[in-house]
Amino acid sequence: MPATETVVDAPRRLPWRTAEVREVIAETSRVRSLVLDVPGWPGHRAGQHVDVRLTADDGYQAQRSYSIASAPEAAHVMLTVEQIEEGEVSPYLAMDVLPGDKFELRGPIGGYFVWTAKLDGPLFLVAGGSGVVPLMAMLRDRVRAPNPGPALLLYSSRTGDDIIYRDELDRLAARGDGLTVVHTLTRGHPPGWTGGTRRVDREMLAALGFPVAASPRIYICGPTPLVETAAAALHDLGHAADRIKTERFGPTGGPP
């Protein structure tokens, strides 16, 4: 007698995939980007993240979440990882990994802190430190929009040497397609610096940001104090709460 089964419409499990490091790019003294070959990668949306799992030769495993830095249409998945003091996974990814090394990756994950070039209207990005990573995926995605709306990245770093993607951001801003990049430095600045010289605050957001009437889509990513400050100030300035999407990171961060 043939067996019959009840077909349950269960969601498919996100599989662990093997990622092979294809290229390593030093971004700053503490940050590296890893360009990965991920056979079977299903694609992602700008702003999403992955879980990474490392396996030691004794079988010990450690798992963390990292934002995806590459645009959805990029040929390879890029992660950008900052070395966290006392970290377990980030020092390995940000310092030790070499081309040819392998680890596991699962994703993409997260369907809220996402943006696509198909969305119209102004795009307002606020980043602190390596919080720029998922926002960079959005700016890389924006390049393919035929008529992109205006965009602003307000990016807070400690010093000029800590700015991630600095050259690429300069190039993107020089395209003349409506993107403005404003840097602010919180721990000293070089002579002749024309950007901001303090932490992101309400005055800075009010002076630089889009007016409320323009109804920008706002994405804020960085350490908790920056995110709390920026989100509260923008809400207070009149931007609707559901237009303000946040992602906080700390030594152990990632959504939700």
């Binding site: 030691a56 010990y60 495993q61 030790d96 090394d101 680890f103 152990t252």
Partner: peptide
């Protein structure tokens, strides 16, 4: 088997009791 990540040692916290830390988690 999962691929071994060359040179990764990990440093499982010695005070992490296995019966209190679920799989894939680490203490903070």
């Amino acid at each position: 088997d999962p691929p071994v990540s060359r040179g990764f040692r990990g440093r499982k916290a010695p005070d992490a009791p296995a019966d209190r830390v679920p799989p894939g988690q680490h203490l903070t």
